[in-house]
Nucleic acid binder design. Structure first.
Lengths: 276, 276
DNA sequence: GCACGAATAGAATATTTATTCCATTAATGT
DNA sequence: ACATTAATGGAATAAATATTCTATTCGTGC
């Protein structure tokens, strides 16, 4: 059997995994991928659980372990159990450790952003206007084309929305301002605009929303306060408040809202099509 | 049998342990003491190992588990394994239920994304490699120019990083692929590349990273598994695993890591300048 | 010192979990 | 298209591990 010396550390393990996963047959590669993504579970799971997670038979997982250079699963698991102790502390403890390392050290900052993100998410869950969200989904599901606009801080959200729509084969355009071409005339009857902007609100976004509104198109706004300048465009307003860390925000809540919106639209469209 | 409700969290467990260990007979107290000191080993050890560690017979350890309110050792171990694994297995079944009941209402989906985001953030806090993060910050703080690249799902992260750098007056270029211009020759000596990519890894990102590496530039990778294709570029690897909701991810953890990285670099630069 | 109940050790058993084996299927080269 | 080899799935087997049971020991009150 391939008794290359078995990896004895996580680094060696990962290295070897990367090295050979290229040349593995299908099922074995499934194992490799699942393991790469769930390395932490190896220490506490059974072959049955892991192989199920990877979508293969236990025997396939077994062969994977051997290809990695171990005698079998137990042998591989032993390695992970030995290095387990360090990763053990739970979230609360770990966060404290991160914070304790000094004020503007990277880890302290990360801790802040993680905590801010969690708070923002909790806040989102309790404050979001479900009725508006539902309406927005219906409107978007019926739209022949969706236009997404958002600049500066809102741009990542806009681009992720566009990515999600594309992945679900939904017609959507990202108005990204490249070359200042401003293709506003691409907005046709019935199209819907998703405008994303936060204080200080960027003029281009407001302008596009206003333009669409004037033409009689529906506008959905994602913003940080229900009373922003989007008010005038009569938009369906989805407001999200993010917790700041200094001058920056982590966008966790906004992106979560956006992706939930997109996936809901996809689900709704499926339903409409199958219903016909 | 003593069927007090079994502890379901670490806090409850510790509480109960403190409560009853006073009144235990000798051997059982040995168990209690050993467990208090080695709580982290419970998830990855056998009764035989633990009882040997405590200096008692397996059957004694068994009785200890029952006194703690569990049905047996396996039952107790399950609790520890679950809290360690971040309840991710739990989460997978929950998603299946969601799909089974056909509940893809916007509010249910949003709730899922919020929950997934929270889990991802917690996971980030407990798994991030602080040493690598610190090194990455130092490398970036010293770079004359930072190149950021990331496509498709990684693009929102890349663009947010660029936004943050710009806001802090740090020289950075976003390689966004507009017009397929591919300005790889803008990478000069000493410049650093931040490459962001997730499975399925996009070739353009890998290529740019490889190009930079070949030229002798340092590469920092943000990816979803420590073994991806970036391994070959000798990159400083920051790996983040996000919890999926169906085929989508909320990016909460990745964006949080990215922004923490950017702000840390900004802080470090300030310090360097003022130090002069 | 004796009787009684609680506590314990150790072996016996039940259960779970890993591992191997082989028939079947897919891939590869001729 | 055929032969040959590699890969796979699933059931059978082996090993490890948890759990229970019982005889024995230990401690306590009388």
């Amino acid at each position: 059997m391939s008794d290359q010396t078995a990896p004895v550390s996580l680094e060696e393990f990962n290295h070897r995994l990367a090295e050979i996963s290229e040349t593995m047959p299908k099922r074995l590669r499934q194992c490799a991928e699942f393991v790469a993504q769930n390395t932490d579970r190896i220490a506490v799971s059974t072959v049955a659980e892991l192989s199920a997670g990877a979508g293969v038979q236990p025997s396939a997982f077994m062969r994977f372990c051997q290809l990695m250079g171990f005698a079998g699963f137990s042998d591989m698991q032993r390695m992970f159990r030995e290095t387990y102790a360090q990763k053990w502390p739970d979230y609360a403890t770990r966060l404290e450790n991160l914070r304790a390392t000094g004020d503007d050290s990277p880890s302290a900052l990360l801790a802040e952003f993680v905590e801010a993100g969690r708070l923002s998410l909790e806040n989102l869950a309790t404050t979001v206007d479900l009725e508006t969200l539902e309406t927005a989904v219906n409107v978007l599901a019926a739209a022949p084309m969706i236009h997404v606009v958002g600049f500066r801080r809102a741009f990542p959200v806009a681009s992720y929305l566009s990515y999600a729509f594309e992945k679900m084969d939904i017609a959507a355009v990202l108005h990204d301002g490249v070359g200042n071409l401003n293709p506003r005339h691409a907005i046709r009857n019935g199209d819907v605009v998703i405008a994303i902007t936060f204080a200080p609100y960027s003029q281009e976004t407001i302008d596009l929303a206003a333009y669409a509104h004037a033409k009689g198109n529906k506008v959905i706004a994602i913003s940080d306060a229900p009373s922003g300048p989007m008010r005038k465009t009569d938009a369906l307003m989805l407001s999200v408040s993010e917790v700041d860390v200094g001058a920056f925000r982590a966008l966790s809540a906004t992106i979560s809202l956006a992706i939930a919106l997109a996936v809901s639209v996809g689900a709704k469209r499926d339903k409409l099509e199958n219903g016909k």
